[in-house]
Write a protein that binds this DNA or RNA. Structure first.
Lengths: 188, 188, 188, 188
DNA sequence: GATGAATGAGTATTCATTCAT
DNA sequence: AATGAATGAATACTCATTCAT
């Protein structure tokens, strides 16, 4: 009968956290995040019991959002190589379009505050992409490697490629293609 | 600004910082680092003006040490592929032998406190390795890509491979070879 | 300011406050008390304007309940000494039967939040017991001391005796009698 | 070789804590205590690891000081009754001369923050007074009661007497004597 | 140079109370 | 009346850095 707890407000806190973490790192004060979200400091703790909880929620939200972006339009393609190339392009597109999200994710990716459970949830979200990857490497030289290993390699290549595109955006397309070709050579 | 006498003490602080950062992350108190180094809290600031300065010194020291380890014995080989494989193996060997050094480097690698100058110094230290890489990719499909891009890809692959070896040490050799083969395929 | 309807709810809040204060002390959150009473946090403030008001209400309620317990069956006795002994026994019985009530009262007894008015009300409730005390000391060495002083001494003795019974319940009866005898000696 | 840690400063913090706790209760902010002691907020935590530690130190300091005051001149007397009467008088004198110390002690006496170890130390400090008490009750009706029980009764009587003297200081001497006589009657 | 005591700004979290529903 | 979301002031404790010894 009281005001219901607002999903909007929760989302606003997560969104604010992304901006503030991108700008200030994980040591950003909760008070700053709350103010950026337009809520009182105490309200942040109504939606997230601790700062660590918020950080984990942000991590999972970003991973999920990224996963959706990566798979956009992918199933309209028939060819596996084309599917993987589109996913790859989507990935780079998302990361370069939302640099603050990528920055926040980079901070969270190496933080001890993000729990194994959250990382697991992140992998879960990327399951669709993993499936394409699975088909891409099947029959190739990495057919017997653990999928996790292959995924880690792809992830590492994508991160390196994104770093390079950001530092040299004039040749974004060239780097995107070169990165993908390099990856494809790994698989075939 | 006169350089303090004891080079030993400076080294002890850097060594202690590596241990403590590996264990506690970059937010480790300077007092903890000083105690681990066997010096007084105030003494740390005789050798490093700020904590950020210390962090940068640690970063450069680790990168330099790693570079030396990577090149060990490499010039005794004639074949480029063999040289690269030895460098690759040395790299993985170093990273898995000194997990706390790698952990510290991982923390520092993503920190905003490490300056572009320090990162530049890190690249400089790796110049010898870069040269081998340069010859490895010459004539191959990546011959026209910026060397920095190629280096970033290799670095990414190495990190992913090390992660995997650490999480599954029983198959260290298999992962080491698989990682190298994947990289080699990228170049040829 | 219209009195809220439910007397039940008010009583439930007071009862919950006793439990929670006994367990957590006076710094127990109002939200915890409200939840223990089965009402919403906001509802507590419909029945008590402030936390201090609630604390005072609890104090008076406990003192009143204790006074009733103390006088139970006392007027059936003729002899003053027997009356006082029964009251004394009733007191110890109540305090040891409801340790959480005594604990809460102990916390409140030393609190600055309990007003002189509430303490006055507490004395008022104990008027019946005071009357017996008055007759007990009449004619003895304390006949000219202020009644309040005598009451304070008796109260102090009772508290000390209760403490001792709680810490050594095996000899409850012995302590009860020894305490009473000591008190009686003071009066005669 | 640095400044030695100052005993004076520690004492100043304890003294300030007594004043502030007497005025504001145990919830007094550590920052207020530090300011009253003339030190920085952080310095308080150099001398006491936590607020609880400070509270315990204050408790023990007050108990010890009180014990010294109580025993002042007592051993010059031969007669046990005179010794006990002087100790009793000293006690009331100390409590009424330093009402803020007594207030602070009253707050601490009922606090859950004061550990059993601290209470034990408090008893230890009062060992001299306990010895006089032991001799006072020997041969009397309380000869077989546990000493702790007798001490608790005496303590309770003293507290009640002090309360009464504070509320009616015009008749301090009368109350002092009446309280002592009442106690003596308990023992004989 | 070396020490470690001293500083005080900075931060996560709590909680009495209010108020929209 | 009843609810519980929303508020924001309040507070213990930390830690990079300075400075008296």
């Amino acid at each position: 009968m009281a005001r219901p707890r607002s999903e909007d407000k929760r989302d606003a806190i997560v969104a604010a956290a992304i901006e503030v973490i991108a700008a200030q790192g994980l040591s950003a004060p909760t008070a700053t995040i709350a103010k950026a979200a337009g809520v009182a400091t105490g309200s942040l703790f109504l939606y997230f019991q601790t700062k660590t909880d918020l950080l984990n929620a942000v991590y999972v939200a970003l991973k999920s959002e990224m996963a959706v972006a990566v798979l956009d339009g992918v199933h309209a393609k028939d060819d596996v190589r084309e599917q993987l190339f589109l996913a790859w392009s989507n990935w780079l597109q998302w990361a370069t379009s939302f640099p603050e999200k990528r920055r926040a994710l980079a901070h969270l990716g190496v933080s001890d505050e993000v729990t194994p459970q959250s990382r697991q949830a992140g992998h879960q979200a990327m399951a669709g992409a993993a499936e394409i990857l699975e088909r891409s490497r099947s029959g190739g030289p990495m057919r017997d490697a653990p999928l996790g290993f292959v995924a880690a390699l792809m992830n590492a290549l994508a991160e390196a490629t994104i770093d390079f595109i950001i530092s040299d955006p004039a040749h974004a397309d060239r780097h995107r293609i070169a990165g993908f070709d390099a990856m494809w050579r790994m698989f075939t």
